[in-house]
Design a protein around this nucleic acid. Structure first.
Lengths: 335, 335
DNA sequence: GAGCCTTATCGAACCGGTTCGATTTAATCA
DNA sequence: TGATTAAATCGAACCGGTTCGATAAGGCTC
């Protein structure tokens, strides 16, 4: 591998001039620039990114940290970020914490050690320890998905209260009154907001919510399945179920199928968030989806802005909240 | 951030002794080891991975390069690799090439520049240029998924010929004769093998294959949909369709639904590879799935073996081919 | 042509570790 | 006790770049 000294020797100039020529060609005379360009081509010089990062104290990489890269929601965002970052000369390192806060911390620390220029982070923690950890990081960070109280960073996400409200309103319009909800973990902002959207809409409509119709599905497949089962074996069953995310909603669909309930004939179903292959799932689930591409675009732009703009680093944190979209299916019937 | 020189100063020893103590404690006296340990704790020293990698010429990271990290198939493999690598003190850098060979090359080059200790690679290319590129890399590499002729590296994958044969045999057993196949790109080993498995099984059974029943779906959603449409509008329709991967098979299901064909009553469907939420897709598709966890385990073990074992680097390449598993659904009916 | 201001180039220190040959210290043996 | 050898420690060079103050060269004014 050719080094910068090989180039300097061949071009008969000093190492520092080569470095300067490469990073700021305008400040070097035409003549020497030519010589250096030739030498670079001749020895096939490519700067060692490691050495560069060490010397500069900053690399041209950004970290992408989420709990589940397999989730298409994060996949779309990742793709947007990658494209945008690549266009701006930055490389994206993807890490998956499997939703474990400890692992997330370790990964973030590793990325910081790599002197990444910035981080796009879907935070998984919420306690004081976690807040201190994130707060102590001295790197541009754009948080997304989960809004965590106490984190003073840019945030990009969707209006989850509205998402819950939209589906609830839809079900109410169709005549449903016995509406159940399978919620997510109470420490997650998305979960509580969606739940609040549901409760507020029900209250506004003057419809009482049966306490037995609010079950916790932890946003996971297994918990969602259990929660759905609890709903379905009650003597007085709901006429509609609102799944607060895709995992719990689809688990509910599975549970219905296994117990012999037909959707939407026996029970209606609606969910927040899209899922891959939703078009071939029968029935097509009525849902409210987030604009993942727009979210990804904003995250990418905001992060690169903070990284590349000199004054970008000191701008106060800002929240970007997008409006989710209603996508009708045929999983909800009028009663 | 504390450096090794701070530690040396506080412990009143030389920098080189600190370095030695940290990398090979046995070669340092008990007394100084104690001093150094105290100093490390006192200043909160953590070695800079960048500086280490630069000096050593090798980092404790491995690269994971695939065309689509969102694909659950790759997700399982990634998880296995991450767990195993982490247990062995290595960190996994995940990159996504979006299936573009040029981007893949750039990412591999970047990872090499980062002095990664090894690479787990799902190759996307196949031409001579690509072969030269991969062949020229001087790092332990374990390829998986696609077996590419001309790459002399470890390979881990499934028996795709058998996968195609199993489903074909199943359909034949059910009495089907007019069986169609939606294939993948002819330059992909998995696609040609699955296709060969189909053709060989048909030939062995003495059943002629209607040339119109072999359509190319490119392993993608859009192409698969078009291919399925071509099959379904023929005057003489197939009684069963074999999707060579999940994308083309599910696109075919969608096409059937849109044209009003019922599955399996009108047309049977079988596919290779699993898909998330397959349990809630109606009908449950009959499929042959790869043992992703086992694949991931082998990839991880093989790669780390080559990295950590002194003689591991020079062992000749080896192929690991796993047997896929038949998972019956209710998308194929007897005729 | 002397004086002054740019512009171009250079040398040396630095980023934060590792490595290896040299030197000092301690232990072993005759 | 002095010679021999092994163990412990050190200094300096190195990995491959960047940065900045200093120097040299060129251009301009008067």
């Amino acid at each position: 591998m050719a080094t910068i000294r090989d180039v300097a020797k061949l071009a008969d100039v000093s190492v520092s001039t080569v470095s300067l020529a490469l990073s700021n060609p305008a400040r070097v005379s035409q003549k020497t620039l030519e010589k250096i360009r030739h030498a670079v081509a001749a020895v096939g010089f490519v700067a060692d990114p490691l050495a560069q990062s060490l010397a500069r104290g900053r690399s041209r990489m950004v970290g992408f940290v989420v709990g589940n890269v397999g989730n298409p929601f994060f996949g779309d965002i990742r793709r947007e970020l990658e494209n945008y970052a690549l266009d701006h000369g930055h490389f994206v390192l993807v890490t998956d914490s499997s939703g474990k806060t400890e692992r997330e911390k370790a990964m973030v620390e590793h990325l910081i050690g790599l002197k990444t220029a910035g981080l796009a982070l879907a935070p998984s923690g919420h306690d004081q320890d976690y807040l201190d950890f994130i707060g102590g990081l001295n790197v541009p960070i754009v948080c997304f998905d989960q809004k965590v109280a106490g984190i003073e960073r840019d945030f990009v996400g969707s209006d989850n209260h509205l998402a819950g409200a939209m589906l609830t309103e839809h079900l109410l319009q169709l005549g449903h009154r016995r509406i159940a909800i399978i919620t997510g973990p109470s420490h997650m902002h998305t979960a509580t907001e969606r739940y609040r959207g549901f409760m507020d809409t029900m209250a506004n409509a003057g419809v009482e919510v049966n306490p037995n119709f609010v079950v916790d599905g932890q946003f996971t497949r297994t918990s969602g399945y259990e929660a759905a089962m609890r709903l379905l074996v009650q003597p007085e069953r709901p006429t509609a179920i609102l799944g607060a995310n895709n995992a719990v909603a689809l688990s509910a669909l599975q549970a219905m199928q296994e117990l012999g309930f037909r959707c939407p004939d026996d029970i209606s179903l609606a969910m927040i968030d899209n899922v891959q292959w939703s078009s071939v799932i029968t029935p097509r689930i009525t849902m409210v989806v987030q604009d993942t591409l727009a979210l990804g675009g904003i995250i990418a732009r905001r992060l690169m802005h903070r990284i590349t703009n000199p004054q970008g680093a000191v701008e106060p944190p800002q929240d970007f909240v997008l409006t989710p979209k209603f996508v009708p299916g045929n999983s909800c019937r009028r009663i």
